[in-house]
């Protein structure tokens, strides 16, 4: 369970200070997958960095499973926007990077195979398609077998076929691995497809302006249903009212 209470994050100080998140509160239940949707530059990445323990809150607090977050935690994995792969490491070394940093001996072979990356272990990121790079980023997080997965726009800038493929993959992994997930996106359909609840953020500085219950989520077939279409329409309306 993730509890965020009055979270405020401000970059810099004084006259040049940039408030990115202002008094944001949210709760994510254990094993729940929540999507967070908001306009570009509203503070979504900043929020995820704070949840991951990379940024200390300027005010407010964050608790994971009841413990206050005071730095990066080993049971939390973050999938960076654009995957954040290291160009000088092979696919395998990238997927095992977090494991090695934590001094863990496990390998990522199985996870890579599951994500359709078998045979590419010795390749470098520059040799991969955009969709494959994202899957390597996902593999790196999965290899840790985390209790909490933080995902930053995992399908941004992908073509629509690859995007749906990755969305289905994330849904399947959520069922299979049973993690608690926060998925940040600026794509409304993605928010509806992958969020049991959808938190709608305001323009910068981010706060939650609406929480949309989305009980129909959970099946790949959800995309074609009238309920899905009406949820997207509703989300569009909410974002339109608060958007840039």
């Amino acid at each position: 369970m993730i509890e965020v209470d009055g979270l405020t994050l401000i970059y810099g100080r004084g006259g040049t200070a940039v408030p990115a998140v202002a008094g944001l509160s949210m709760v994510v239940d254990s094993y729940e997958l929540v999507s967070v949707v908001g306009p570009s530059g509203c503070g979504k990445t900043t929020l995820l960095f704070a949840l991951d323990g990379l940024l200390a809150p300027t005010a407010g607090r964050i608790r994971m499973h009841g413990e206050e977050v005071r730095g990066v935690r080993r049971d939390v994995a973050l999938i960076l926007q654009d995957a954040g792969l290291l160009p000088w490491k092979t696919v395998r070394a990238n997927a095992e990077l977090s494991l090695r940093i934590q001094g863990r001996k496990e390998t990522a072979g199985k996870v890579l195979a599951e994500l359709g990356l078998a045979g590419f272990e010795k390749r470098y990121p520059s040799e991969l398609s955009e969709g494959m790079k994202r899957r390597v980023g996902i593999a790196r997080a999965l290899a840790l077998q985390p209790r909490v997965m933080l995902m930053d726009e995992p399908t941004a800038n992908l073509d629509s076929i690859t995007r749906e493929h990755i969305q289905n993959l994330i849904l399947g992994l959520w069922w299979e691995m049973g993690f608690t997930g926060v998925l940040v996106t600026h794509d409304m359909e993605e928010a509806v497809f992958l969020g049991k609840r959808i938190l709608v953020l305001s323009a910068r500085p981010a706060r939650v302006v609406e929480v949309i219950e989305n009980p129909g989520m959970g099946e790949p077939g959800y995309r074609g249903t009238p309920e899905f279409v009406s949820q997207v329409a509703h989300l569009r309306q909410v974002l339109g009212g608060n958007g840039p």
Binding site: F49, D52, L54, V72, R74, A77, L78, L80, Q81, D82, G84, L85, L86, L97, S98, I101, Q102, R140, L144
Partner: peptide, 16 residues
């Protein structure tokens, strides 16, 4: 910066 973030997120020490 995202290269640094990717290792910091895993808990890397300064040396790592």
């Amino acid at each position: 910066p995202s290269h640094v973030t990717s290792v910091r997120s895993a808990g890397a020490t300064r040396w790592q």
